[in-house]
């Protein structure tokens, strides 16, 4: 079965519908699936629930879907650096579920692994525990967190082969790895698609079973939120 598509619009054909839940990879703007986000914006699909660590910045990444009012609810751990998000949140237009970063990653990993919930120490004694079951194991309290399993996952990788085996590069891996597993329709965009056999099977980060559709989104002009450098010491 052919998994490669010509572009993001083609790769998302038939999978988008109003009110759906989407898991989106990336950390800040690093490793965000920007071609797929653009195609979702262009489709006009609305009332989306999006699980993503962050919500992009104004007009960039998921910030585009906020600007176009396609998002009903965000499940995120950190949403700074985004004025439109702030405006919609404070006016009540946008629903937000704040979820600790590690809990969000595990909720998606667990969802993909067929585990409907898990107990964690994270958030015990805080607002995050409100309304959640608490259980004591060996003298310590834990709260029950529910898994996330979405209608669609969108991720960004570095390279993939035509079968869908995929590898990431450096810290652009981040949430793309758990999000790749947390739906039955994971669409990946990568910088290069290579023939089967070009990637050492021992080096594959995401096995092909999780990647249903694939596009090459190159060329990329990657975004940097805070460019920091140091001076070379003079010889």
């Amino acid at each position: 079965m052919k998994k490669t598509f010509t572009d993001a619009v083609a790769a998302l054909d038939g999978v988008l519908h109003d009110g759906m839940t989407i898991c989106c990879g990336g950390f800040g703007l690093s490793g965000m699936p920007e071609r797929l986000i653009d195609a979702i914006e262009a489709s006009g699909v609305k009332d989306l629930t999006i699980a993503s660590n962050n919500a992009g910045i104004d007009g960039v990444g998921l910030g585009k879907l906020l600007r176009s009012r396609q998002v009903k609810k965000m499940i995120s751990s950190y949403v700074g650096e985004n004025k439109e998000f702030e405006r919609q949140y404070l006016s009540g237009e946008l629903e937000v579920e704040f979820c600790p970063q590690g809990t969000l990653a595990e909720r998606c990993r667990a969802g993909g692994a067929g585990i409907p919930g898990f107990y964690t120490k994270t958030g015990v004694g805080t607002q995050v525990a409100d309304g959640k079951e608490t259980k004591n194991f060996d003298g310590e309290d834990y709260i029950l967190e529910r898994a996330i399993f979405a209608d669609l996952s969108i991720i960004k990788g570095w390279k993939a082969d035509e079968a869908g085996n995929l590898i990431f590069r450096k810290t652009a891996r981040n949430f793309n790895e758990p999000m790749a597993t947390s739906s039955y329709m994971t669409v990946a965009e990568v910088e290069e698609i290579v023939p089967v056999g070009s990637i050492d099977p021992d080096q594959i980060h995401i096995p092909s079973i999780y990647v249903k559709r694939l596009i090459c989104g190159a060329p990329y002009e990657k975004h940097i939120e805070f460019r920091m450098t140091r001076e070379r010491e003079s010889a």
């Binding site: 995120s76 950190y78 949403v79 700074g80 704040f98 600790p100 970063q101 590690g102 994270t122």
Partner: peptide
């Protein structure tokens, strides 16, 4: 005030 989120802080202090 505007809530930006807890990021990874809750996981760090718990773990």
């Amino acid at each position: 005030k505007m809530i930006k989120g807890m990021g990874g802080a809750m996981d760090l202090v718990a773990g």
